[in-house]
């Protein structure tokens, strides 16, 4: 057109100026706290979560917000890559002044309670959380605990996506859902995350 305006955006500079120090990523995770396990009948592995998690400043802040704090525990066998887990939701009812808790374990067993005090909540927190069942004599596990604000997993969009995928028959069968679920069920930024690597002997 004979009227081409100067375009912006790309500029050429001397190569010597292009040296950019780019640090290699350093994977980081919160300092793991002690996690203990129980082996129950039927090869069920249950974990006792550290009580110190409830005392963490940010977790405590969410717990006292009157809104739900969601704790998602993912257990993955490092050899077979089998995936299982459990979820805990805790909300303080401001009017009734009770803690409303819900625990959903690996086999979909659900437990709901109203707990009268924080001390009782800490005691309930220490009850073993059933994560998986296995017949193997050894279980090399990677356990991830993520603390989320809000009851994010209750979202309708998550339900719809699961429904579209045909549902998930077992707790270990969720890998096909990965693409559809990324960034949706976990829309809220996690408050804290923890990771443990353990090698369990079930004999």
């Amino acid at each position: 057109m004979g009227d081409v305006p100067p375009r912006r955006g790309v500029r050429v500079v001397r190569p010597a100026l292009a040296v950019v120090l780019f640090l290699l990523p350093l994977l980081a995770s919160a300092q793991p706290q002690r996690l203990t396990f129980q082996v129950q009948p039927g090869g069920v592995v249950a974990a006792v979560l550290p009580a110190s998690i409830l005392s963490d400043t940010d977790v405590r802040k969410q717990l006292s917000s009157g809104l739900t704090a969601t704790f998602v525990v993912a257990a993955r066998n490092r050899v077979t890559q089998d995936l299982s887990g459990a979820r805990i939701e805790i909300r303080y009812d401001l009017w009734d002044e009770v803690w409303l808790v819900r625990k959903i374990e690996f086999d979909r067993k659900q437990e709901q309670q109203r707990i009268a005090s924080f001390e009782a909540l800490e005691k309930w927190w220490k009850t073993p959380l059933r994560l998986l069942a296995t017949g193997a004599p050894r279980a090399p596990l990677q356990i991830d605990l993520t603390v989320l604000p809000f009851s994010a997993a209750e979202r309708e969009d998550a339900r719809q996506w699961i429904s579209k995928s045909g549902g998930v028959g077992t707790a270990g069968g969720g890998t096909g859902l990965v693409d559809a679920l990324i960034g949706t069920t976990i829309a809220a930024k996690p408050i804290m995350s923890y990771r443990w690597s353990v090698e369990l002997s079930l004999k």
Partner: peptide, 13 residues
């Protein structure tokens, strides 16, 4: 892991 576990348990819940 978190996404899958949350979704699976959401469905059951």
């Amino acid at each position: 892991l978190t996404a899958v576990i949350a979704a699976v348990l959401t469905l059951s819940a």
